[in-house]
Design a protein around this nucleic acid. Sequence first.
DNA 1: CCCGAACCTGAGCAAGCGCTTAGGCGGTGT
DNA 2: ACACCGCCTAAGCGCTTGCTCAGGTTCGGG
Lengths: 216, 216
Amino acid sequence: MSAAEETTGEDAPWGEVTPEAARRLLVAAVDAFAERGYHATTTRDIAGRAGMSPAALYIHYKTKEELLHRISKLGHERALSVLEAEADREGAAADRLAGAVRSFVRWHAERHTTARVVQYELDALGEEHRTEIVALRRRSDAVVRRIIGEGVRDGEFDVPDVPGTTLAVLSLCIDVARWFNARGSRTPDEVGELYAGLVLRMVGARRPPREPGAAR
Amino acid sequence: MSAAEETTGEDAPWGEVTPEAARRLLVAAVDAFAERGYHATTTRDIAGRAGMSPAALYIHYKTKEELLHRISKLGHERALSVLEAEADREGAAADRLAGAVRSFVRWHAERHTTARVVQYELDALGEEHRTEIVALRRRSDAVVRRIIGEGVRDGEFDVPDVPGTTLAVLSLCIDVARWFNARGSRTPDEVGELYAGLVLRMVGARRPPREPGAAR
DNA sequence: CCCGAACCTGAGCAAGCGCTTAGGCGGTGT
DNA sequence: ACACCGCCTAAGCGCTTGCTCAGGTTCGGG
């Protein structure tokens, strides 16, 4: 059975990487970086996983670091768009915060190999590339802070320290990439749901959203 | 039970590392590993920071990996003892949980270079050493789970998913090592206090302990 | 005064690293 | 037919890596 290649959409996360050989190399690099770390991964290992010779890598990427940069940039953009999609919806801050956490966590769990590279290999990037990525991360921070701030303003949340709580919420979500194991007992959906609830408690949400009837 | 000869105790964290040169090398390795990561650090760099020639390292440690193992083991033991000290006290579960989180977080912030190595270089260890360390980490998990379980049993906490919440609490604390910056605006004490409050909310503690009157 | 143990260095080895180069192969336009 | 171009490989270059080893220094005890 030959694979019917799907080149676009959310399900094939590296669909935008063209030519096909470049995509294969990038996917191989994600796996290798996530498994062993950037510095412990050799260009020979990446090329080998993609079924090519070491030299083939340098036709599609100038350096090993450029590969990491491409992965990091695309990954951050995807994670950020997941966050923003939920944040820009209409409705109560509690619903938006819960939705954002649920989606963000689910992304980190589902794509935990990518997320691991994205979140933990930041300082393997060169100076310029790193500052570019850091700017993206600040936008994630701003999104979460905005929702929490609005919740406080509207009297939905009780948060004494908005920046600190924002930091903690993002930290909690990001760390999912470190411990999540696909062979573990929890599905990405379950973790997202659990974390959305925990975060609502962290911000002191007045009433839990969804489930309008059950109070207990 | 051997004579515990502490040179200086908690304030000089590597006091128990006996030949002075070995301690200098270990401290240098902690700095280097935290700054660049294990794989990106060379033995020449470590020796240089300790003011020695590269060969001197191998008089005190068999391999570079053994150095990492020593750091990781001592670090985990210290972090675990910090946790257990607060967990074994008497009193309400909320007080013990808050105390444990406060101390654990403070440790990760104060000793964030050590903590970074301890928490993020686990899979640079060899097979045997890694399983040894993983056992220590499971004990940390057990400590937190026990407190939360007792809080639920005594009706102090409202936690639908005890293992999941335990995981989240520990994850939150551990990730402090990643983002904490000594030149940042928060002191380790402040972060510990903030996180203790957040965790109490996560477990649905009935009433916040300490500070009986003051608000704002 | 010398001895042996503990400690450290200068020089360097084998292996592996990121990356380059010269060239081959297959499909397309003319 | 043939030149061209995109894609790939075999071979290997220059360098750094973890680690070794013969030899030197320091120092307490006899």
